[in-house]
């Protein structure tokens, strides 16, 4: 329980904790980081051959090493991902019918096919590559920089404002939640699956929502008297520099290499 509850605090630690400020990506333009990360993720998911995916995995690991991340965060993320994917990965070898009569192995009444194993490995590689790339390229990106990068990539201003305000209040509400939860705990509440527990958790969520609703009125009034009209104003971003161009070129080369391997194998 405590593990999940402290998730937000850990993920919202200062950016310096997630990726060191000396990494390859930390000084680059947020727009360029977001663009190359998206391009690389889409390319990785589009690859089909195992060889090309393995090349992509090596490149993703190289990017991660260059980003100098906090390895404990990386490990935690990958573990969560593996647990999340376990069901589908374990099931696939048994649910994909073999192309010929070749059966890989038997497990009781179940038969595993090579095609199924192949597909399971493909999916596992893709999901891991995406998480590695995201952690390397935009892990540790500050929320404000992320929002502005999204705006330049075409996300409407009001949506960006919604994102920034949501991020800003996540931490506040996390504390609000922890406070109510502590109050329940000192009264001896333990979460079980029975009517009383579920009702108590429902009241907890309802109370959080009521408090948030009241808070939002104060926020709106404060923002109104500062002339809020739906979007926040920022200084113009400086144009991408040579380093950003290099990062773009490097990512393009890496994607090109994977695609070349894919086509060469096919």
């Amino acid at each position: 329980m405590a593990h999940h509850e402290s998730l937000l605090h850990r993920e919202f630690a200062p950016p310096s904790r997630l990726t060191a400020s000396v990494g390859l990506f930390s000084d680059r333009d947020p727009r360029v980081r977001l663009a190359v990360a998206l391009a690389a993720c889409v390319a990785a998911v589009a690859l089909q051959s195992l060889t090309a995916l393995l090349v992509a995995l090596v490149l993703a690991i190289a990017a991660l090493v260059a980003a100098r991340p906090d390895w404990r965060t990386v490990g935690r993320r990958l573990l969560a991902l593996e647990g999340f994917m376990a069901m589908i990965i374990v099931m696939l070898p048994f649910t994909v019918p073999p192309a010929g009569d070749v059966i890989l192995f038997r497990l009781g009444p179940l038969t595993a096919s090579e095609e199924g194993l192949h597909q399971a490995v493909t999916i596992l590689l893709k999901t891991n590559i995406v998480v590695l790339l995201l952690t390397a390229m935009i892990g540790g990106l500050e929320a404000t920089a992320f929002g502005r990068a999204l705006a330049t990539l075409g996300l409407p201003g009001r949506m960006v404002t919604l994102l920034l305000l949501t991020v800003r209040y996540l931490d506040v509400l996390q504390r609000d939640y922890a406070q109510l939860r502590r109050a329940m705990r000192v009264r001896g509440f333990r979460a079980r699956v029975d009517r009383h527990s579920l009702r108590s958790i429902g009241y907890l969520v309802g109370m959080l929502l009521v408090r948030s609703f009241d808070r939002s009125e104060r926020i709106l009034n404060a923002m109104r008297c500062r002339g809020f009209d739906g979007t926040f104003r920022h200084d113009a971003l400086t144009p991408p520099d040579r380093g950003d161009a290099m990062l773009g070129a490097l990512t393009g080369l890496a994607i090109g290499a994977c695609v070349w391997v894919e086509l060469a194998v096919a």
């Binding site: 919604l162 949501t166 209040y169 996390q174 948030s212 939002s216």
Partner: peptide, 16 residues
């Protein structure tokens, strides 16, 4: 925007 933002942050916290 403020009420939607604060409520969506609440739901995010509650989903943990």
């Amino acid at each position: 925007i403020p009420v939607v933002a604060v409520l969506s942050a609440t739901f995010f916290v509650a989903s943990l």
